[in-house]
Write a protein that binds this DNA or RNA. Structure first.
Lengths: 261, 261
DNA sequence: GATTTGGTTCCAAATATTGAAACCAAGTTT
DNA sequence: AAACTTGGTTTCAATATTTGGAACCAAATC
């Protein structure tokens, strides 16, 4: 603690409160928030008022609780649709899932965490809103490592410092040094693996998506279980995976919004 | 224009900018935003900085454009998951779609507009993130009218004044007075219809969802086309629809977050 | 009837926002 | 090549907002 945490004025504080509500994962009472946030009563109260007015929060008078508001859903829909990554990648992901018969993830990174923006499961063809938007740790997932490996130095340093390095399994890379070492290899190789580092029995192979072949904007992974398949088995998907990732990267770079001049 | 529009201080202005970016529907240049927003250069610049810092916007250095950021997607996921409506309604919607063989929508209202939070199509079993989050007009959709009909007076008045009353079709209710009249009937009857008021050939039957039988928190609709079915045909679904809506309403009211005491 | 708990309002002091204007870097035009 | 755009960033004093301690209110509890 005691991190000044570049706090971006009033707007930053308001968003912090949204995150707080989100992190609790359920509708919350005023007092509960008061305990968590270090704002005085009056201040918190006004933020809550404002955010509720703005439909960023909703207030349920029956239970006297605050929850995240519908405006977020609307904005997120727009975000998804106007991103150059997710909509562009969609058909490619479909194809890859089809071809491999395994689960495919598309992820971006936010604040050191991995954010899954799309997912395709060979079994049920389309995944649902309630799935996209999930977050996961960066340091022990295939997509997280793939993205970090290709970040510019300063961003990578920041990301490395934001990891928790909790050892989920015996294979988890549990220090910044070890992770940094692996990132170098990944950068050289162009591929990352999750060797049961996050969950026992779950393995994956991932590749970064480089916009125009240069700037990393996300990652693509093929996930399976050790009972279904193996790392060697995943390796047979490598050509398809890298080809798809590259295709998405060029497509995303070229994706100019329709109204260009 | 010239509407003071209860502007909730700095936070409100920042969110206004997010909406602006969202409304343009594609990545936008600084100057473009400058023209649209009535902020001076320096002010807009700082807002953009802040929002980008906060991952509410993303900046693409290649194209020099701003787009909505990934943090929104993460927050929206949480919003969806912690809402007492959408997750609770899910299995009911599945069942209703199954039973009727028609398309089922679940909607809430935000700022006079209808926001679709879930959708189930008999044909493709699950609908996708890119679909949930869409918005539509309130005054000429079944769900919109169902929700407004059951709002408390002051909220209804506000909603009525927020409608555009553009006549999409010959059947569109194109004035607040006519709409108000219909809302009364809907309130008495407990059911609303869309009689090709928004799109020719598209009809629907909708029912409000009342939390604990009192407070309206959304609406449920069964949609079809005039070629597939008819208003009379839709009416045969009425019992199933109202039963489902009522079931969701009680369930949502009882839905106390797990960690209760 | 007194006391606690949960929420809302007041107001002066502290702080953040504001925007005109200056500035800078790249491209264009002349 | 000099002058002039266009697009973006920074400065700084004036101004408007936010801040939070404390008072206040209502409802539930002792």
């Amino acid at each position: 603690m005691s991190k000044p945490a570049r706090s971006d004025g009033t707007v930053g504080k308001a968003l912090e409160i949204l995150d707080l509500v989100a992190s609790l994962g359920r509708p919350v009472r005023f007092t509960e928030l008061l305990e968590q946030s270090d704002h005085p009563k009056a201040t918190l109260y006004r933020f809550l008022q404002t955010l509720t007015n703005q439909n960023m929060l909703s207030y349920d008078p029956d239970t006297q609780t605050y929850a995240l508001g519908v405006r977020l859903v609307r904005l997120a829909h727009a975000a998804w649709a106007q991103s150059s990554l997710a909509p562009v990648a969609r058909p490619f992901i479909d194809a890859l899932a089809q071809e491999t018969g395994e689960t495919v993830h598309l992820a971006q990174m936010e604040g050191g965490q991995v954010l899954y923006v799309d997912k395709r499961n060979a079994a049920n063809p389309v995944e649902m809103f309630s799935q996209a938007g999930k977050v996961g740790p960066g340091y022990c997932t295939g997509v997280g490592k793939a993205i970090m490996a290709f970040m510019p130095q300063d961003a990578q340093d920041r990301a490395l410092s934001q990891q928790a390095y909790y050892a989920y399994t015996g294979n988890t890379l549990s220090s910044a040094e070890r992770l940094r070492g692996e990132l170098e290899e990944i950068r050289a190789d162009g591929i990352s693996y999750d060797r049961e580092e996050h969950e026992p029995g779950i393995i994956c192979i991932a590749a970064p998506i480089l916009s125009g072949g240069r700037r990393v904007i996300g990652a693509l992974s093929i996930t399976t279980t050790t009972t279904r398949n193996s790392l060697d088995g995943l390796n047979t998907f490598r050509p398809a995976l890298t080809k798809t990732a590259k295709a998405i990267g060029t497509e995303a770079a070229n994706w100019q919004f329709p109204t260009q001049n």
